[in-house]
Nucleic acid binder design. Structure first.
Lengths: 347, 347
DNA sequence: CTGAAAGCGCTTACAG
DNA sequence: CTGAAAGCGCTTACAG
């Protein structure tokens, strides 16, 4: 490793101690303006940047936050989602001069879960966890340990956890009602997400609430999917093969909607003429399919930004206990439901 | 911060010094098997994980590698690309017990570039840089500084840099030739990427080489794009408005191809009937459009994995100077060119 | 063979 | 007011 510039180097050049140089750089008042400026100039000239390790050790603080991605969700969520989350985290972390560590947690069964490794090694001062399965024991342990954690999403089973999410139930209910009210659809199908994740349960509940209220539940069908494009295709194929009749499909995400629409088209079923389709997420895919998908826009980046802000509060001790923050979502109306050109229905 | 378990805690429980405990955990031979096991058991029981800061300070090594994303390329590359890169990096980093830091480098004009901050603060032992502009002075400085850096992509202007890339020229030439040879297209258009990036130049060169060799350069048109979906749309719209005639378009990426196809469809031009279209990247988008896009599959994850392996070689000093590694690419034949069902043409 | 010091780079509490 | 020690957690080179 190339020898790097330390505080001592800066101090020596100015003829003060490292301690004084440290204070000078931090603007401590006991250092005269003259030496303060001299030290800062020297630091600039030498290209001094504080050692993160030295600082972390002394301050008992890593100056970094981590994004932890449970194994289970590797296939579960599309890549785009994580990019939005990373972008949001980076934005917040930059504002706090902190680094972002990504722990895509390969395969760790027994032993300390990757969640905890990051924390116990103090590489990060806190972690953002997203899309963990409901019964993820490691999550529970981590939250119980008292280490700073903020979840993205809703976790009713972890009431002690700070979290930032959206109202999946209400959103799915609204978009389902759009099919019923605006398009007169009555024979509705819901293709669920993974049901070991809270979003899967919530979106299904929202769908069921809508059909119940509108009295069209007798014809409603629920098919289990896994959020993958193929599972959307499989679900529709199974329905068609079984001779089921339906005029609207509420997919728990856009990926499945894409797969489902592909099968419908191949079967000669017109979307949205014969069957209205809606999705969920709007992470990029929904806009580029043909027809473009009417969907619920999940503000992933903003969720991540807020979650990270909250995490810093926790780390700094500037906060008052865990709270759940809920963000509004909007429905982005495109073509797959039968509406005209794209527009957005605000919350 | 919750008080964490240190080596001293482990040592005390067993009744040895921290130094001995350290050696025991690392399996140093001077520690007897009995105490070695006792220490390890104690470490397990207490949930001891070494402090990354302590270790980094002592070892003069962060145990982390960073992914640096220049500002300039925020819009330039789609999100998917970065996820592939991150996945590849994580894989390699895990194998070396290293963390991955993401430096999405907000806005830093003067002063030390984010590139260098990460390195000088020794938060990371080396960095992977992807998609830097050709004339990025900070890149040059970083490479010149001798700090471990590996580029993803080709950088002929930085011969001293280790890098992992693909042959953009050959790949674009091949896919252009596919339009000429397999589909008899003669009036070809190329919509370029950003020309301040090497891939932009290389893909254009590949296109030009193909039309030259096949004697169809008289009708060839080159339009400058910026890799964004809209710029693909704009390029085609301009061509149509100008009354240009063409029967094949080689887009420098799939995003632009998507935008271009949208405009063609809106103008009533059949793809691939009247105009064949091909893209580049295959990061996910090309598969879901209608028609699906025939494209060059860029092995981004594998490039990142190899680049990271190379980076560790550099960090460890296990390597012999900078080298450029080139990965093979394949052409994924789908519908937009006029071919039948999807298949892949290997390199 | 083993015990314990030294020192990585930093910052703050303490001694003078 | 200012100088310099102490100590964060770790590991290895050194002293005994």
């Amino acid at each position: 490793m190339a020898k790097s510039v330390t505080l001592k180097d800066v101090a020596q050049r100015v003829g003060v101690t490292a301690a004084a140089a440290s204070m000078a750089l931090s603007g401590h008042e006991r250092i005269s303006a003259a030496t303060r400026d001299a030290v800062r100039r020297a630091a600039d000239e030498l290209g001094y940047v504080p050692s993160s390790a030295g600082r972390a050790l002394r301050n008992q603080r890593a100056g970094a936050v981590a994004l932890v991605v449970p194994n289970s969700s590797h296939h579960v969520f599309g890549h785009m989602y994580f990019m939005h989350v990373l972008t949001g985290m980076s934005r917040a972390a930059s504002a706090h001069d902190a680094q972002v560590i990504v722990s895509t947690n390969a395969d760790e069964e027994g032993g300390v879960a990757a969640y905890e490794r990051v924390m116990r090694s103090r590489s990060a001062d806190g972690v953002i966890v997203t899309s963990a399965a409901i019964d993820d024991r490691n999550m529970e342990r981590l939250v119980a340990s008292g280490l700073p954690v903020v979840l993205i999403g809703n976790a009713p089973s972890l009431p002690d956890a700070a979290s930032v999410g959206i109202d999946d139930v209400a959103a799915t209910r609204r978009i389902t009602e759009h099919l019923i009210d605006a398009h007169g659809r009555r024979r509705l199908v819901h293709v669920t997400g993974t049901l070991d994740h809270q979003t899967g349960l919530d979106r299904r509940e929202g769908f069921l609430a809508a059909v119940r209220v509108h009295g069209v539940e007798v014809d409603a069908l629920v098919v289990e999917g896994d959020l993958g494009e193929e599972s959307g295709a499989d679900a529709i194929r199974a329905l068609l093969d079984a001779g089921k009749e339906f005029d609207g499909v509420v997919f728990a995400n856009d990926d499945m909607a894409t797969g489902g629409m592909r099968v419908l088209r191949a079967a000669g079923v017109d979307v949205p003429g014969a069957v209205s389709v809606v999705g969920f997420d709007d992470f990029g895919l929904a806009r580029v399919t043909t027809p473009a998908i009417t969907t619920v826009r999940v503000p992933a980046e903003e969720m991540a930004r807020l979650a990270t802000e909250r995490l810093f509060d926790l780390v700094d001790g500037t906060s008052d206990g865990p709270t759940h923050r809920e963000l509004p979502v909007s429905i982005v109306v495109r073509e797959s439901c039968g509406c005209g050109p794209e527009h957005r229905a605000e919350d």
